[in-house]
């Protein structure tokens, strides 16, 4: 290949990597900058001294550990419940033909298109009437419902990849449908279950607006709500905010590495999921 073109290509790649990583790099950079250097070296590419003080103070002197735990509880529960429900629904879509199927699929697709914010007020009223405001379980229920359509399509695509012959063979070998599921289909769909778990976790971990609406007590704040409250209250303690941000990034990155192989399937099967 033409050397000028090759150079251009590598420059373009470097440009993309730089653009993608820069904000995250900056987050990390400010987080490890000692307080007294933030303003003097605020715009330098790397601080002259490094410290983990900000992390230590975030963990010991603020409520971030509690926010973090709340978020973890909400995201993990949402991911687990959603994946179970979506696996059952995806299995039905993949293996059965029945009359209501096109209608149910259409409704699920529509729920991915209309502005979710449209239902934020009614949901608030319903949750308030049930006395579930400021509870993590209300968030889990709402997030589970939001993620079911997408997770169902994702699980369906995984089930579609497992030949129907296999469970028919198992049923002839003496399994009930449930036994065939447990002994043959389930072990084969473990990667799919894992990927769905990862996608839903990532989505639940970053949800902000509904959490903001439904949670106002400090004890039950999830990470995004807590961080935003912190930002508006102590908007000058940059180091701590960024340290908290870096910590919020960690679970996302871990799950991202975990689901990377399934990104294409995940992004195309829901077709609309961010």
């Amino acid at each position: 290949m033409n050397p000028a073109l090759t150079t251009g290509k590598y420059l373009a790649i470097a440009g993309y990597v730089g653009f993608a990583m820069f904000p995250l790099f900056w987050l990390l950079k400010i987080a490890v900058t000692p307080d007294k250097l933030v303003f003097t070296e605020g715009t330098a590419l790397w601080p002259s001294a490094m410290t983990l003080d900000n992390f230590r103070r975030v963990l010991t002197q603020t409520d971030f550990l509690s926010y973090f735990t709340n978020s973890l509880i909400v995201s993990l529960s949402t991911a687990a419940v959603t994946t179970m429900i979506a696996a059952a629904a995806g299995y039905a879509f993949s293996r059965f033909h029945f009359r209501g199927k096109p209608v149910i699929i259409a409704v699920m697709l529509v729920t991915q298109m209309f502005p979710l914010l449209m239902i934020i007020a009614p949901i608030y009223s319903i949750i308030a009437k049930l006395g579930l405001l400021n509870s993590l379980s209300s968030l889990i229920i709402v997030y589970t419902a939001f993620n079911i359509p997408f997770a169902t399509f994702l699980m369906q695509s995984f089930f579609d990849g497992i030949p129907g012959d296999l469970e028919e063979a198992a049923m002839i070998d003496g399994c009930s449908r449930f036994q065939a599921l447990r002994k043959v289909i389930f072990p084969l769909t473990l990667p799919g279950l894992g990927a769905t778990l990862g996608f839903v976790f990532t989505a639940a971990w970053s949800e902000l607006l509904f959490a903001l609406m439904l949670i106002s007590s400090n004890d039950t704040m999830t990470f995004p709500v807590g961080l935003l409250t912190f930002v508006s209250k102590f908007s000058v303690d940059w180091g701590q905010m960024m340290a908290a941000g870096v910590m919020a990034l960690v679970p996302s990155c871990l799950f991202f590495l975990f689901i990377q192989r399934y990104l294409v399937q995940g992004l195309t099967s829901g077709a609309v999921k961010g």
Binding site: S206, M241, G245, L249
Partner: peptide
């Protein structure tokens, strides 16, 4: 992995970082 990573960054964090 690096260039796809922004997709996994929680939106509130992307917003704050920018």
């Amino acid at each position: 992995s690096l260039v796809f990573l922004p997709w996994a960054v929680p939106t509130f964090l992307s917003a704050l970082a920018w």
